[in-house]
Amino acid sequence: MLVDSHCHLDFPDFENERDEVVARAGEAGVGLLVTIATRVRKFPVVCAIAERYDNVWCTVGTHPHNAAEESDVTAEELVNLSEHPKVVGIGEAGLDYFYDRAPRDLQARSFRTHIEAARRTGLPLVIHARDADDDVAAILREEAGRGAFPFILHCFSSGPALARTGVELGGYISFSGILTFKKSDALREIAKGIPHDRLLVETDAPYLAPVPFRGKRNEPAYVAHTAAVLAETIGLSPEETAAITSENFFRLFKKVQRPSMRSA
């Protein structure tokens, strides 16, 4: 079984065929999906989607792009919302200096608020990091000194230094369809150096469809293609890679019930 640890089923791209998208994921061997929140104020929509499907879970949080419009979100609010049985993570939150859609100080403040929520709940923080490696690493190190918290560097496309920092602090690294792109040799080299027990896969659907679907709308079923490239990259079989990344997912997302437990 494979797990798509990061997708956005609430986005308009899936509005008219969400049932079919979830069904196709199952047919492709993707047994579990996590639909990721980008706005706390729209959490009810994300949560309702997770409630609709037995194999879909969700998170609660504010994307760095939206840090200015949700600057009033508190750790207490995140903690309270995370008590819902379908909420298995905090975020996505972090820093994005590529688009800079929110002031950097507000991004950092929101990032720290989400870290505090992850620390208090024990739920993993889903971290968005783009063109902000040094500041993300600095905040992670500083906050880790105040108390441990679980986290995942999602859709990893940063440099080797941030990957090392993440692993050193106990974090996990998730690879998306970017890993399959022809010009992603440097990223594949980073993937080779990640301990196998820290690897996850994702789609970030509807974005970043892997080869051979690059340029088209992405969907959870396509995580199988990313996992196949990851398997080749780290020298394991697709079956071994699926087993490893799924086991890592359950170790990190502790609140998610394994399929066998749900059917028991």
Score class of each variant (00 low, 15 high):
Ala264Asp: 02
Leu199Cys: 08
Thr35Leu: 06
Glu83Phe: 09
Ser260Arg: 08
Arg141Cys: 07
Gly177Lys: 07
Leu236Met: 11
Ala68Asn: 07
Ser158Lys: 02
Ala25Trp: 05
Leu123Ala: 10
Asn80Trp: 03
Pro195Ala: 13
Lys182Leu: 07
Tyr99Asp: 02
Val229Tyr: 13
Lys86Leu: 13
Ile190Gln: 06
Asp185Ser: 08
Phe253Pro: 03
Ala221Thr: 02
Cys7Lys: 11
His128Gln: 12
His225Ile: 02
Thr180Trp: 13
Pro212Lys: 06
Arg24Leu: 09
Val60Gln: 11
Gly145Asn: 08
Ala75Arg: 07
Pro103His: 04
Ala50Val: 14
Gly170Gln: 11
Met1Gly: 13
His225Val: 03
Thr74Trp: 05
Ile244Tyr: 11
Asn55Tyr: 11
Ala209His: 07
Ala148Trp: 03
Glu240Met: 09
Leu230Pro: 07
Tyr53Met: 12
Ile90Cys: 02
Arg262Met: 03
Pro124Thr: 06
Val201Ala: 13
Asp72Gln: 10
Lys42Trp: 05
Pro210Cys: 09
Asp135Pro: 02
Ile244His: 05
Phe43Tyr: 15
Asn66Val: 03
Tyr222Leu: 15
Pro64Ile: 09
Ala25Tyr: 04
Pro206Thr: 14
Val60Trp: 11
Glu27Gln: 15
Trp57Ala: 14
Ser263His: 15
Thr62Glu: 04
Pro220Gln: 03
His196Cys: 05
Ala28Tyr: 11
Ser71Tyr: 00
Ser5Arg: 04
Thr74Leu: 04
Ile173Asn: 05
Arg39Pro: 10
Glu76Arg: 13
Val46Arg: 13
Asp19Tyr: 10
Cys58Lys: 09
Thr203Gly: 08
Ser174Ala: 12
Val30Gln: 03
Val201Asn: 08
Ala75Cys: 10
Asp135Lys: 01
Leu252Ile: 12
Asp135Ile: 02
Leu169Ser: 06
Ala205Arg: 07
Pro259Met: 05
Phe11Lys: 00
Lys86Pro: 12
Tyr222Asp: 07
Gly166Lys: 11
Asp185Trp: 02
Ile115Gln: 00
Gly235Cys: 12
Phe213Val: 02
Gly122Gln: 00
Leu123Thr: 05
His196Ile: 10
Gly122Cys: 01
Glu83Gln: 15
Leu32His: 09
Leu236Phe: 01
Val34Phe: 00
Ala221Gln: 00
Leu32Cys: 11
Tyr222Val: 08
Cys155Ser: 13
Glu202Leu: 12
Leu169Gly: 06
Thr233Phe: 01
Ile90Trp: 00
Pro64Phe: 06
Phe181Asn: 13
Asn218Ala: 15
Ala161Pro: 02
Gly29Phe: 07
Glu70Asn: 06
Gln257Tyr: 09
Lys192Ile: 11
Leu153Tyr: 05
Thr180Ile: 12
Ala37Gly: 14
Pro44Phe: 09
Gly94Ser: 10
Cys58His: 09
Leu187Lys: 07
Cys155Met: 02
Leu2Asp: 07
Glu116Ile: 04
Ala75Thr: 01
Glu116Pro: 09
Ala117Ser: 04
Thr226Val: 14
Thr226Ser: 12
Phe98Tyr: 15
Ala138Val: 07
Tyr207Ala: 14
